[in-house]
Nucleic acid binder design. Structure first.
Lengths: 234, 234
DNA sequence: CGGCATTTTGACCTCGTTCAACAACTGTGG
DNA sequence: CCACAGTTGTTGAACGAGGTCAAAATGCCG
């Protein structure tokens, strides 16, 4: 399971990159960065491997160094919902770190993935020593809370086609888009799970949006936004 | 707007209570509490008055001292969703404090309400000075994030009757329940908004749950849980 | 008591799920 | 490089959950 920690130079290099890459640390001075780097260890996961599991005790903050991670939940009735996808620089594991002692979500490597872990106690020490880190994490939490509540509110009040349209618009915003084309960041199956519907409905609604002239489906994953304003008024 | 800060003894008393009452501060020593108290000011709101408004600039942390506050969102299509209800000791306003500069939600006094406000800059100063406060807030945020994601996930995967059942069970858990009776903390109209459905459906589903022998509706707001296990398997 | 908001009930209709079959895509080993 | 198997995506038809609209009933507060 544990790999690459004392492997060769390249590993150490990317190890440093891992910490300095993250928004919550990248404002620190070099000396402080080194100090944090010293306590992290790096772990690699194979595609489809579980990084943690609901019910697991939480002992670390996980920072994605390379790869992609699916965070999902199982609802009371056993259905899976995709919560978010982590890309390099994103972190997780915090939930359990600060309040609950066990994870509520599942984290699964979508491709071969390298994670930097910071031990819970080490992190708490840093937070007490460098309070500015807390402020960064608080900012990140605020964003996530906002995103999650917005998502909740859309589930509560919008129909599926609107949720899809808003997803596309949001996602286009996030891309450094000089373009009107986008590549779906996940399979349509996952998108269905993320948007609280079924793959069948996703498929039909995409066709509907295309028929109405708002989008053009280039391939399964490539989409061109033809009429952004139209999309916003679905 | 500003009231009660130098009013009379009773006001100062409750002012202190306000700060020392809150989980995020109540671990501090007396001297530190006094210091924070010194920077807070107290504001009163009438029933139905808005405390803040989506789009408002955020300048303060709001702690409920007395009363009840409805936090809600308007979705893209203009429908309202109830996000949470604040009781004495709960706080809000944080979203904008740490990341966005404007509020995404609306906060409305449900009854005559007294709020303690801590200025954004003062708070940041305290966070840098007493890092343990950040840890408390991080813990609180973790909880909220978890609650919000859980809610999201229920919207995405459960039908209305299950959401209602889970709401009742959760709420019964939260009460210091030696009893199997509960008083709904909000109107059914608000409950509908909170659970992402309509008052009509709420009404019908409550009847259904009663017909199936899981609950008994004593009055509009009083409910007895007759068969908890049944409710969990709805 | 009278007025107003909340809650309930009924009838109807729409949206989205479900199930089943098929098509397209991806990766693996021969 | 192709064949095959396992996913993932698409399409059709039927059903059902829940939204909508209208109207009546209940409860609340001045």
């Amino acid at each position: 399971m544990k790999k690459d920690t004392t492997h060769h130079d390249h590993s150490v290099e990317s190890h440093k990159a891992c910490v300095s890459l993250v928004p919550i640390f990248n404002h620190l001075e070099d000396g402080q960065l080194d100090e944090i780097m010293g306590t992290t260890h790096s772990v690699s996961y194979q595609k489809h491997e579980l990084i943690y599991h609901a019910g697991d005790e939480s002992n670390a903050l996980y920072i994605v160094n390379k790869g992609k991670v699916r965070i999902y939940r199982l609802s009371e009735s056993g259905k899976e919902q995709l919560v978010r996808i982590l890309n390099p620089g994103d972190f997780t594991g915090e939930m359990a770190l600060f309040s609950e002692s066990t994870h509520e979500t599942y984290a699964e490597a979508m491709v071969n993935t390298k994670i930097c872990m910071i031990n819970r106690l080490d992190l708490q020490e840093f937070l007490m020593k460098y309070p500015s880190i807390s402020l960064k994490i608080l900012a990140e939490f605020s964003h996530r809370l906002d995103a999650s509540e917005k998502q909740s509110s859309r589930f509560a009040t919008e129909k599926v086609d609107t949720r899809i349209a808003l997803f596309l618009v949001d996602y286009l915003d996030k891309e450094i888009s000089g373009t009107d084309e986008l590549t779906l960041p996940m399979s349509k199956k996952d998108l269905a799970s993320y948007l609280g519907t079924t793959p069948e409905t996703i498929s039909r609604k995409f066709n509907e949006l295309e028929d109405r002239g708002y989008i053009k489906q280039l391939t399964h994953k490539q989409i061109r936004i033809v009429d952004l304003d139209g999309l916003l008024f679905v």
